[in-house]
Nucleic acid binder design. Sequence first.
DNA 1: CTGAAAGCGCTTACAG
DNA 2: CTGAAAGCGCTTACAG
Lengths: 345, 345
Amino acid sequence: MQPAPPPPRAPLALRDRPAVTLRQVAERAGVSMITVSRAINTPHQVSERTRVRVQEAVSSMGYVPNLIAGGLRSARSHVVTALVPTLTGPLFGEMVQALTDALELRGFQVMLGQVGYAHSREDELLRAIVGRRPDGIVVTGIMHSPEGRRMLMASGIPVVETWDFTDTPIDMLVGLRHEELGAAVCEHLFAKGQRRLALLSGGDERAARRARGFEAAAVRLGLHKPAVRLGKSPTTHADGREGLAALLADAPDIDAVFCSSDMLALGVLTEARVRGIDVPGQLAVVGFGDIDFAQTVSPSLSTVRIDGTRMGQTAAHLIADRAEGKAVEEPVVDIGFSIIERESA
Amino acid sequence: MQPAPPPPRAPLALRDRPAVTLRQVAERAGVSMITVSRAINTPHQVSERTRVRVQEAVSSMGYVPNLIAGGLRSARSHVVTALVPTLTGPLFGEMVQALTDALELRGFQVMLGQVGYAHSREDELLRAIVGRRPDGIVVTGIMHSPEGRRMLMASGIPVVETWDFTDTPIDMLVGLRHEELGAAVCEHLFAKGQRRLALLSGGDERAARRARGFEAAAVRLGLHKPAVRLGKSPTTHADGREGLAALLADAPDIDAVFCSSDMLALGVLTEARVRGIDVPGQLAVVGFGDIDFAQTVSPSLSTVRIDGTRMGQTAAHLIADRAEGKAVEEPVVDIGFSIIERESA
DNA sequence: CTGAAAGCGCTTACAG
DNA sequence: CTGAAAGCGCTTACAG
């Protein structure tokens, strides 16, 4: 976080006026600071008359309590930090929304830190986050960097890893096994009669895992080794169009494509249509994510759905229970996945 | 899918001890607390020998400075909070990424707070954010609630409003005039020869503003009052399909649709194709956002692009300059927009 | 180059 | 129901 050049300090006077403090409110209300604190945080511990006096002072002075200071003393920040790889994708939105809503009900505020798919600055960001002592940390994906894992473990902060699965979680985990998912999609296509499979995948780790499961299942089923085209994440519609073109150039006889995202799959649908390839008649297409348009494009898109709402809610309760010192019975949850069958496969 | 039984948990030997403090590091290194602080934050103020000793203590003990405590004393949190309406849309991703990158270079970390399109809990969230005393706040859109405006102004925290325009900003602003944008799209369609215009719009405020500009321009140009269909935000692909169907039911002779998002426009393209309506021959379509697929769908989508990167970078420097006490010459910036002409219009 | 004291704005832990 | 004192973990402001 803090880079080399010593930051030029802002003269405090430049801020319009320093914020109103608890002490000033207490003076105005004619009570002690601790009484103001109670009137705000635990009003039932204070007499009606006092509460009203304090309330008047608070609103007339526009007092907004400094939660940082309170958190420092009480060692409870009421903040949970969620690390998300990107804001561009719709995939994590549902989970983050559910996480936010569920934690809000339990008195926590969610702050988001953006990681990007690159792992380069992850440790640095992590240091900045751990340094702010949140009451919990939700990680998208599995934390791999040994330095990062050590820092999180040593911090004593409750951690939930999500969206993936490992036998060695840092602390708690709500995710799914992407190899199994890849295998299940392969079996689904096989059951539908497809025999020359192909794979179009972004470069992130979970997509790679799905790809591995898909390929292994194809071998088990006695099929040809799938034609594979790998790109990078996040995946785009253009990647989907180019990807199908490249696959067809190499392997013109493919009859099914499993795409690592719905956007990629949408690109494949577009390219197929432009080329006059019938979906699913000549080519079956499966996406991943079940986002927005999957149900209403034409042909509608068969895809794999992860229950982001359940994942977010589960993560929220794990974090909140741990932060409140409650016992967590089931710290590792596999939420699975479901294949949504529509027109495209 | 049946989840497999969870594996045994990793041992958490390191967890549950209170975090290492500056005092402990100082004892280990045999120097005072302030010297440790300097060795970490302003190493040039400390002798080589001391710096090495401190560095060894820091890494052997896994010390992560408590930035909250430091921030309390120094009145500089090095955090900028950005309020975004939703994570589901790709629209804000580019801006937030640019904001994050630019602020990181200047020593600030960006934390995101999710507002949702509903304004109901906005004040509550704002209180939680102002209470954490960030060094800056970036708001998506214009803040309207009088309570919220008062709180932000009284806080003395630098504020940048974005994505919209007003003559009464709270503090600073980087945005654009959505009425002008709507009018420009109307004029573009007129110039292309379209005469029976229609409008398909989500319910958020900026979309409504674009709609107003669009309708006003149609009147100025002597056209029929556009057929209008309003929905809610965020808009979906399904809304686009249903929207076009509804517009055609009411006004079968329309020859152009301006959609308040690219996703809506994609739904319109799908519905038109299914109905055998030629785009742009029988129906011109314009989106908003220039996201991912706009360039590569078929027909490619004419749309309106906002330079999110420039908006994010500009906001970053406004915030950082203000936080560092530098003078801000141009606190209100209109970044404009551009109409991207492709096949659909 | 180094350090002892004070203080940031709250809450905790006692005490009445 | 109310309050005086101590302290959370740092940095500031002095002083040497």
